[in-house]
Design a protein around this nucleic acid. Structure first.
Lengths: 116, 116
DNA sequence: TTGTTTCATTGCAATATTACGATTAAATAA
DNA sequence: TTATTTAATCGTAATATTGCAATGAAACAA
């Protein structure tokens, strides 16, 4: 597993639980609309090459490539070289793990004794 | 509604859908373990004052205050002044809206025609 | 009034993120 | 071989985020 501190910058990850750090890492990768758009596109197509994304999304090729790298580093997508192009798709088992962790966080119970 | 460009920096939000921008804004606020920890603590207690959080989490008071401000700006928490302290809690209806948007994103179907 | 307590704000340094032009690398085509 | 195509990487500028000391503001207590 990647060390949280490698990519969290100033965040003092050692004062938080592994769960809190994991949630924030997943959230962080969704924290840019281009990466959200890339994932939605991959879900729509079930496969895809990088060039498609450059046309689909309006960003330059190096920028898309960088966003793909971040998604790949977290394990949410995987890519296969196919000739001169690369075929990316969702990594199903890692996506399901992430989904479980995130939904558990989002699904916390709101008791009705709100104070304000 | 807050203008996305006010807080997304370089991100070219105009090239993305409102949905993609909304998802990324919600995700961004979860993209720091301190804010995840604050939210979990608020869920656990159903109410809370800022000073509690400074003790609970190891960060300085201005840092906690800043994280609270971001959560409040997105509407996920609300705060009431009570004497010299401030009572924060989850904003239930906004939390439920966020949850719906995020779960819809996380719940996309993975077809079985993976290509790689 | 003068403290005291509690939280917000300011200001700033350190670091991270985003974007993209230029270049490189790798596969294929001519 | 020499293009050509496609995507990754490098380098760097612009901007954002994080953290906290110092300070301010507001409510309360003595």
């Amino acid at each position: 597993m990647k060390q949280y501190n490698d990519i969290m910058g100033l965040a003092k990850t050692e004062m938080f639980t592994d769960e809190q750090n994991e949630i924030s890492l997943f959230a962080k990768v969704f924290g840019h609309p281009a990466r959200v758009a890339i994932l939605q596109y991959l879900f729509k197509l079930d496969s895809c090459i990088c060039g498609d994304l450059v046309n689909e999304i309006g960003l330059a090729q190096p920028t898309i490539s960088q966003h793909l790298k971040e998604l790949k580093q977290l394990g949410l997508i995987k890519g296969n070289v196919e000739g001169t192009s690369v075929c990316y798709c969702i990594d199903e088992s890692n996506w399901l793990h992430m989904k479980k962790v995130m939904i558990q966080f989002l699904d916390q119970d709101i008791s009705n004794k709100e104070c304000c």
